[in-house]
Amino acid sequence: MKREVNDDLFDWNSSLITLAHELKSPLVLIRQLTLSLDDASQKDTELIARQLSLTTDRTLRLVTDLTRVSRLEDAMFEMQPLSPRKICEDVIFTITSRHSSNVPTLTTSYTKKPTLIIAHPDLLTSVIHNFCENALHYSGGQKSPSRLFIKPTRQNQIRIGVRDFGPCLPLDIWRDIKSHKILTRPQSISARPQSSGLGLYITSRFVHAMHGRLGCVRHRDGTTIYADFPLSTQLSFQL
Protein backbone atom coordinates (compact mmCIF):
# COMPACT_ATOMS: atom_id res chain seq x y z
CA MET A 1 0.00 0.00 0.00
CA LYS A 2 2.84 2.36 0.86
CA ARG A 3 4.25 1.87 -2.65
CA GLU A 4 0.90 2.61 -4.28
CA VAL A 5 0.64 5.96 -2.57
CA ASN A 6 4.26 6.87 -3.32
CA ASP A 7 3.52 6.33 -6.98
CA ASP A 8 1.60 9.61 -6.93
CA LEU A 9 -1.78 8.18 -7.67
CA PHE A 10 -3.38 11.46 -6.69
CA ASP A 11 -5.68 12.27 -9.57
CA TRP A 12 -5.03 16.00 -9.99
CA ASN A 13 -7.37 16.50 -12.94
CA SER A 14 -10.47 15.40 -11.10
CA SER A 15 -9.33 16.71 -7.75
CA LEU A 16 -8.49 20.27 -8.75
CA ILE A 17 -12.19 21.06 -9.13
CA THR A 18 -12.82 19.62 -5.68
CA LEU A 19 -10.00 21.67 -4.16
CA ALA A 20 -11.18 24.81 -5.93
CA HIS A 21 -14.74 24.34 -4.72
CA GLU A 22 -13.63 23.64 -1.14
CA LEU A 23 -11.64 26.86 -1.10
CA LYS A 24 -14.27 28.86 -2.97
CA SER A 25 -17.04 28.21 -0.43
CA PRO A 26 -15.34 29.91 2.54
CA LEU A 27 -14.09 32.73 0.30
CA VAL A 28 -17.65 33.38 -0.89
CA LEU A 29 -18.78 33.45 2.72
CA ILE A 30 -15.97 35.79 3.80
CA ARG A 31 -16.75 38.13 0.91
CA GLN A 32 -20.45 38.23 1.72
CA LEU A 33 -19.81 38.83 5.42
CA THR A 34 -17.28 41.57 4.69
CA LEU A 35 -19.69 43.35 2.32
CA SER A 36 -22.39 43.26 4.96
CA LEU A 37 -20.20 45.03 7.55
CA ASP A 38 -21.01 48.46 6.09
CA ASP A 39 -24.65 48.40 7.11
CA ALA A 40 -24.31 46.24 10.22
CA SER A 41 -25.29 47.36 13.71
CA GLN A 42 -22.78 47.17 16.55
CA LYS A 43 -24.24 43.86 17.71
CA ASP A 44 -24.21 42.42 14.19
CA THR A 45 -20.66 43.65 13.62
CA GLU A 46 -19.42 41.61 16.59
CA LEU A 47 -21.26 38.53 15.34
CA ILE A 48 -19.95 38.97 11.79
CA ALA A 49 -16.40 39.47 13.09
CA ARG A 50 -16.64 36.18 14.98
CA GLN A 51 -18.06 34.38 11.92
CA LEU A 52 -15.25 35.82 9.79
CA SER A 53 -12.69 34.60 12.29
CA LEU A 54 -14.20 31.08 12.40
CA THR A 55 -14.39 30.87 8.62
CA THR A 56 -10.81 32.02 8.09
CA ASP A 57 -9.59 29.58 10.78
CA ARG A 58 -11.37 26.74 9.01
CA THR A 59 -9.93 27.74 5.64
CA LEU A 60 -6.40 28.12 6.97
CA ARG A 61 -6.62 24.69 8.60
CA LEU A 62 -7.66 23.20 5.27
CA VAL A 63 -4.80 24.91 3.42
CA THR A 64 -2.31 23.80 6.10
CA ASP A 65 -3.56 20.22 5.83
CA LEU A 66 -3.28 20.31 2.04
CA THR A 67 0.30 21.57 2.33
CA ARG A 68 1.11 18.74 4.71
CA VAL A 69 -0.43 16.20 2.34
CA SER A 70 1.84 17.41 -0.45
CA ARG A 71 4.90 17.02 1.81
CA LEU A 72 4.05 13.67 3.35
CA GLU A 73 6.61 11.85 1.22
CA ASP A 74 9.44 14.14 2.31
CA ALA A 75 9.88 12.32 5.62
CA MET A 76 9.33 15.60 7.43
CA PHE A 77 7.01 14.05 9.93
CA GLU A 78 8.96 12.03 12.45
CA MET A 79 6.92 9.64 14.55
CA GLN A 80 7.13 9.65 18.33
CA PRO A 81 5.33 8.13 21.32
CA LEU A 82 2.26 10.22 22.08
CA SER A 83 -0.62 10.16 24.50
CA PRO A 84 -3.76 10.07 22.33
CA ARG A 85 -5.84 11.16 25.29
CA LYS A 86 -3.81 14.34 25.68
CA ILE A 87 -4.26 15.14 21.96
CA CYS A 88 -7.99 14.40 22.17
CA GLU A 89 -8.37 16.68 25.17
CA ASP A 90 -6.50 19.47 23.36
CA VAL A 91 -8.74 19.09 20.32
CA ILE A 92 -11.89 19.11 22.43
CA PHE A 93 -10.66 22.23 24.21
CA THR A 94 -10.00 23.97 20.89
CA ILE A 95 -13.38 23.03 19.46
CA THR A 96 -15.27 23.92 22.63
CA SER A 97 -13.64 27.35 22.90
CA ARG A 98 -14.35 28.05 19.25
CA HIS A 99 -18.01 27.06 19.54
CA SER A 100 -18.50 28.84 22.87
CA SER A 101 -21.73 30.50 21.78
CA ASN A 102 -23.13 27.29 20.40
CA VAL A 103 -21.97 24.42 22.61
CA PRO A 104 -21.30 21.37 20.47
CA THR A 105 -22.72 18.04 21.47
CA LEU A 106 -19.62 15.89 21.81
CA THR A 107 -18.98 13.41 24.59
CA THR A 108 -15.79 11.46 25.28
CA SER A 109 -15.00 7.91 26.28
CA TYR A 110 -11.35 6.99 26.88
CA THR A 111 -9.72 3.72 27.81
CA LYS A 112 -8.64 3.71 31.46
CA LYS A 113 -5.33 2.04 30.63
CA PRO A 114 -2.45 4.48 30.18
CA THR A 115 -1.52 4.25 26.53
CA LEU A 116 0.99 5.70 24.14
CA ILE A 117 0.84 5.36 20.38
CA ILE A 118 3.42 5.96 17.69
CA ALA A 119 2.29 8.98 15.71
CA HIS A 120 3.10 12.54 14.74
CA PRO A 121 1.51 15.21 16.98
CA ASP A 122 0.43 17.61 14.20
CA LEU A 123 -0.92 14.90 11.92
CA LEU A 124 -2.73 13.15 14.76
CA THR A 125 -4.23 16.44 15.95
CA SER A 126 -5.46 17.11 12.43
CA VAL A 127 -6.97 13.62 12.12
CA ILE A 128 -8.86 13.88 15.42
CA HIS A 129 -9.89 17.45 14.63
CA ASN A 130 -11.31 16.36 11.26
CA PHE A 131 -13.16 13.44 12.88
CA CYS A 132 -14.77 15.75 15.45
CA GLU A 133 -15.62 18.62 13.10
CA ASN A 134 -17.13 16.19 10.60
CA ALA A 135 -19.27 14.56 13.30
CA LEU A 136 -20.41 17.90 14.67
CA HIS A 137 -21.26 19.20 11.21
CA TYR A 138 -23.34 16.23 10.15
CA SER A 139 -25.09 15.45 13.40
CA GLY A 140 -25.53 19.00 14.67
CA GLY A 141 -29.29 18.82 14.77
CA GLN A 142 -29.51 15.33 16.26
CA LYS A 143 -30.62 14.60 19.82
CA SER A 144 -27.80 12.15 20.61
CA PRO A 145 -24.34 13.68 21.02
CA SER A 146 -21.42 12.40 18.95
CA ARG A 147 -18.84 10.44 20.96
CA LEU A 148 -15.07 10.69 20.67
CA PHE A 149 -13.47 7.49 21.94
CA ILE A 150 -10.11 5.82 22.50
CA LYS A 151 -10.03 2.07 23.05
CA PRO A 152 -7.60 -0.83 22.61
CA THR A 153 -8.19 -3.32 19.81
CA ARG A 154 -7.57 -7.06 19.74
CA GLN A 155 -4.60 -6.52 17.44
CA ASN A 156 -2.75 -4.69 20.22
CA GLN A 157 -3.44 -1.33 18.63
CA ILE A 158 -5.25 1.76 19.81
CA ARG A 159 -8.43 2.84 18.09
CA ILE A 160 -9.35 6.53 18.04
CA GLY A 161 -12.68 7.38 16.50
CA VAL A 162 -15.91 9.30 16.55
CA ARG A 163 -19.41 7.86 16.49
CA ASP A 164 -21.86 10.32 15.01
CA PHE A 165 -25.60 10.29 14.42
CA GLY A 166 -25.64 11.99 11.05
CA PRO A 167 -26.53 10.49 7.67
CA CYS A 168 -25.23 6.96 7.18
CA LEU A 169 -22.06 6.69 5.09
CA PRO A 170 -22.91 5.38 1.60
CA LEU A 171 -21.81 1.84 0.77
CA ASP A 172 -19.45 2.91 -2.05
CA ILE A 173 -17.47 5.23 0.25
CA TRP A 174 -17.40 2.54 2.93
CA ARG A 175 -15.93 0.11 0.36
CA ASP A 176 -13.37 2.72 -0.78
CA ILE A 177 -12.20 3.17 2.80
CA LYS A 178 -11.98 -0.60 3.31
CA SER A 179 -10.02 -1.06 0.10
CA HIS A 180 -7.82 2.02 0.71
CA LYS A 181 -9.02 3.48 -2.60
CA ILE A 182 -9.85 6.65 -0.68
CA LEU A 183 -6.08 7.33 -0.55
CA THR A 184 -5.93 8.10 -4.25
CA ARG A 185 -8.38 11.00 -4.58
CA PRO A 186 -11.25 12.76 -2.82
CA GLN A 187 -14.63 11.10 -3.39
CA SER A 188 -17.74 13.17 -2.86
CA ILE A 189 -20.19 11.73 -0.36
CA SER A 190 -23.67 11.98 -1.80
CA ALA A 191 -25.52 11.33 1.46
CA ARG A 192 -23.55 14.09 3.15
CA PRO A 193 -24.05 17.29 1.18
CA GLN A 194 -21.40 19.99 1.27
CA SER A 195 -18.97 17.09 1.50
CA SER A 196 -16.49 16.82 -1.33
CA GLY A 197 -14.71 13.99 0.50
CA LEU A 198 -11.59 16.15 0.74
CA GLY A 199 -11.50 15.95 4.55
CA LEU A 200 -11.74 12.18 4.41
CA TYR A 201 -8.98 12.06 1.78
CA ILE A 202 -6.66 14.25 3.88
CA THR A 203 -7.39 12.19 6.98
CA SER A 204 -6.73 8.92 5.16
CA ARG A 205 -3.36 10.20 3.90
CA PHE A 206 -2.32 11.35 7.38
CA VAL A 207 -3.37 8.07 9.00
CA HIS A 208 -1.51 6.13 6.33
CA ALA A 209 1.62 8.26 6.82
CA MET A 210 1.54 7.38 10.53
CA HIS A 211 1.31 3.67 9.66
CA GLY A 212 -2.23 3.59 10.95
CA ARG A 213 -5.36 2.18 9.37
CA LEU A 214 -8.52 4.14 8.65
CA GLY A 215 -11.82 2.35 9.07
CA CYS A 216 -15.50 2.98 9.48
CA VAL A 217 -18.65 1.29 10.65
CA ARG A 218 -22.02 2.05 9.10
CA HIS A 219 -24.82 2.21 11.65
CA ARG A 220 -28.52 2.51 10.98
CA ASP A 221 -28.48 5.90 12.67
CA GLY A 222 -25.05 7.25 11.81
CA THR A 223 -21.42 6.41 11.25
CA THR A 224 -18.35 5.55 13.27
CA ILE A 225 -15.11 6.59 11.65
CA TYR A 226 -11.89 5.52 13.32
CA ALA A 227 -8.17 5.07 12.91
CA ASP A 228 -6.08 2.28 14.45
CA PHE A 229 -2.53 3.18 15.47
CA PRO A 230 0.37 1.00 16.60
CA LEU A 231 0.87 0.92 20.35
CA SER A 232 4.14 2.27 21.66
CA THR A 233 6.12 -0.16 23.77
CA GLN A 234 7.67 2.74 25.68
CA LEU A 235 6.56 2.94 29.31
CA SER A 236 3.73 5.40 29.77
CA PHE A 237 3.57 7.65 32.77
CA GLN A 238 0.43 9.37 31.60
CA LEU A 239 -2.92 8.71 33.20
Binding site: S25, L29, Q32, S36, A40, Q51, G141, P193, Q194
Partner: peptide
Protein backbone atom coordinates in the same frame (compact mmCIF):
# COMPACT_ATOMS: atom_id res chain seq x y z
CA UNK B 1 -29.47 27.22 2.57
CA UNK B 2 -27.45 24.57 4.38
CA UNK B 3 -24.62 26.88 5.38
CA UNK B 4 -26.05 28.30 8.57
CA UNK B 5 -23.68 31.27 8.68
CA UNK B 6 -24.68 32.30 5.17
CA UNK B 7 -28.36 31.72 5.96
CA UNK B 8 -28.00 34.04 8.98
CA UNK B 9 -26.34 36.58 6.72
CA UNK B 10 -29.32 36.45 4.31
CA UNK B 11 -31.71 36.91 7.24
CA UNK B 12 -29.79 40.02 8.34
CA UNK B 13 -29.73 41.33 4.77
CA UNK B 14 -33.50 40.86 4.44
CA UNK B 15 -34.34 42.29 7.85
CA UNK B 16 -37.25 44.27 6.38
CA UNK B 17 -38.99 41.01 5.50
CA UNK B 18 -40.19 38.02 7.50
CA UNK B 19 -37.77 35.16 6.95
CA UNK B 20 -37.55 31.51 7.91
CA UNK B 21 -34.51 29.34 7.22
CA UNK B 22 -34.28 25.66 6.30
CA UNK B 23 -31.20 23.53 5.72
Amino acid sequence: EDDQVLAAHFVRTLKNHTTETFT
